[in-house]
């Protein structure tokens, strides 16, 4: 009996490791852009409507990754959360291990942190609140933020602060981003795939035109935050895949 249990255990472990051994490794490399330029902090840029500004901080959460199979099914990947930070190059490379073999035509992810993690108390890792990406006075994650300056802003600091968050129904700004691969991606065995992506900050300002003078400070779940989120859901683009 014991021997049988032992043997079946070996078989199970064997299967698990062999399956693991056959999974692929997915890497997403994100380049931040402002229009056609690669983003650099404290550099002069113009919004699509011609307003001058500089960027001092650009951060956002990505989570809830899933792959779209060739037959239109979403395969959810292990739940992981990433805080992408322009000032931290390593954060702009996302690693998703254990991708099962299959034929895929796209990827989907959440720009932000799902509502469950917003109501579950303190977390660790990327979601640890000491990042400052969590509102203490009105619990919830700041899903995406950009801070900078514009000479058009009348306040003493000329600073704009867009902290975009809100998970409750009324102020919900969570956006699923679906991107289609340039061509179907066939994964079998152990493969390393790198997806080259861009995230264009200038997409935050259009099509619903955001002007610095109108509302330079957005720091709460609000109508203004919803406007920006509706814009920024279009900021990602796949520019290449390397196998």
């Amino acid at each position: 009996m014991i021997l049988r249990i032992f043997l079946s255990l070996i078989i199970v472990v064997g299967i698990v490791t062999s399956v693991k051994g056959q999974s692929s490794f997915f890497r997403m490399s994100i380049t931040h852009m402002v229009g056609n330029d690669t983003m650099q902090r404290e550099t002069n840029y113009y919004t699509p409507t011609g307003e001058p500004f500089t960027i001092s901080r650009f951060r956002y959460f990505l989570s809830n990754f899933a792959l779209l199979t060739a037959d239109d099914k979403y395969i959810s990947l292990a739940p992981t959360y990433f805080l992408i930070d322009e000032s931290k190059p390593a954060s702009k490379i996302i690693e998703l291990p254990d991708i099962p073999s299959g034929k895929y035509k796209g990827v989907r992810f959440l720009l932000g942190v799902d509502s469950i993690k917003n109501v579950s108390g303190p977390q660790s890792g990327a979601l640890a609140v000491e990042s400052g990406m969590f509102w203490s006075w009105n619990s919830g994650y700041i899903m995406a933020q950009v801070e900078g300056h514009s000479p058009l802003i009348q306040s003493p600091t000329r600073e704009f602060v867009f902290h975009v968050g809100g998970y409750k129904v009324k102020d919900q700004i969570l956006k699923y981003i679906s991107l289609t691969f340039p061509e179907n991606l066939e994964l079998s065995g152990k493969q390393n795939v790198t997806l080259q992506m861009t995230a264009d900050l200038n997409k935050w300002f259009l099509p619903d035109t955001i002007r610095f003078q109108q509302q330079p400070v957005i720091m709460a779940p609000s109508y203004q935050a919803k406007r920006i989120a509706a814009n920024y859901q279009h900021m990602f683009q796949i520019i290449g895949i390397q196998k």
Partner: peptide, 25 residues
């Protein structure tokens, strides 16, 4: 009622500049 979980409640007094004013990191 702005704080939605007992575990995250101490964040407010710890970091509020009129209370304990700590920087969490």
């Amino acid at each position: 009622g702005g704080v939605n979980h007992l575990d995250i409640q101490p964040l407010t007094p710890l970091t509020d500049r009129n209370e304990m004013a700590s920087d969490l990191p």
